[in-house]
């Protein structure tokens, strides 16, 4: 079983990646162990905590719940691909400015979820933001400043000419 490997090809943070994996490899571990993208964290083994959230073809998904081979042919954005051209994504700026992180472990997943939310529902109110954070467990912040950070990211994105997520996935293409 360990010998069997499957080829895959995907676009990660705008760069084409070709490789092969044991079929049982989860996307989260493929990113971390094979590609060294250790910004994506694994906080649980039952798909509750959301620390491993990445964007898969633009959708926020928990990468511990996707086999790497299922992502074959997809676009993946991880926290390492959120900033572009030396500029932080509005969500990254907002998390920093609003103290939306403490230990930083859930933060990559929280920010990927936030990036998706700000893109999808730029005017989500506080209640909607709190509902949308249901897929995230943070033990440090009490979510208070994560909520504030997302509200700030909404404002920053609106003020900015470029839509945040488009920029984050810049240079895409298979």
């Amino acid at each position: 079983m360990a010998d069997e490997r499957v080829a895959l090809q995907l676009v990660i943070n705008g760069r084409l990646v070709r490789g092969d994996v044991e079929p049982r490899t989860l996307l989260a571990y493929y990113l971390r162990d094979e590609l060294g993208l250790t910004g994506t964290h694994v906080g649980c083994d039952t798909s509750q905590c959301g620390a491993c959230t990445v964007l898969l073809d633009g959708l926020a998904v928990k990468s511990c719940t996707v086999l790497a081979v299922q992502a074959d042919g997809c676009r993946v954005t991880t926290v390492e691909g959120l900033a572009s051209g030396g500029h932080l994504h509005p969500v990254q700026r907002a998390f920093q400015e609003e103290h939306g992180l403490q230990c930083g472990f859930c933060t990559p997943g929280a920010m990927m979820l936030a990036a998706w939310l700000v893109e999808q529902e730029p005017h989500a109110d506080e209640r909607a933001i709190r509902e949308a954070l249901d897929g995230l467990i943070c033990r440090c912040t009490g979510y208070e400043n994560i909520v504030r950070a997302i509200q700030r990211a909404q404002a920053l994105s609106e003020a900015s000419e470029e839509p945040g997520l488009q920029r984050a996935e810049g240079g895409r293409g298979r």
Binding site: L82, L101, G104
Partner: peptide
Amino acid sequence: VQRKEDARLVRGRGRYTDDIR
């Protein structure tokens, strides 16, 4: 003051123990 540690943490450049290879 904004946190110095955030510069790495928001970029996914934290160095947690499990990141060691």
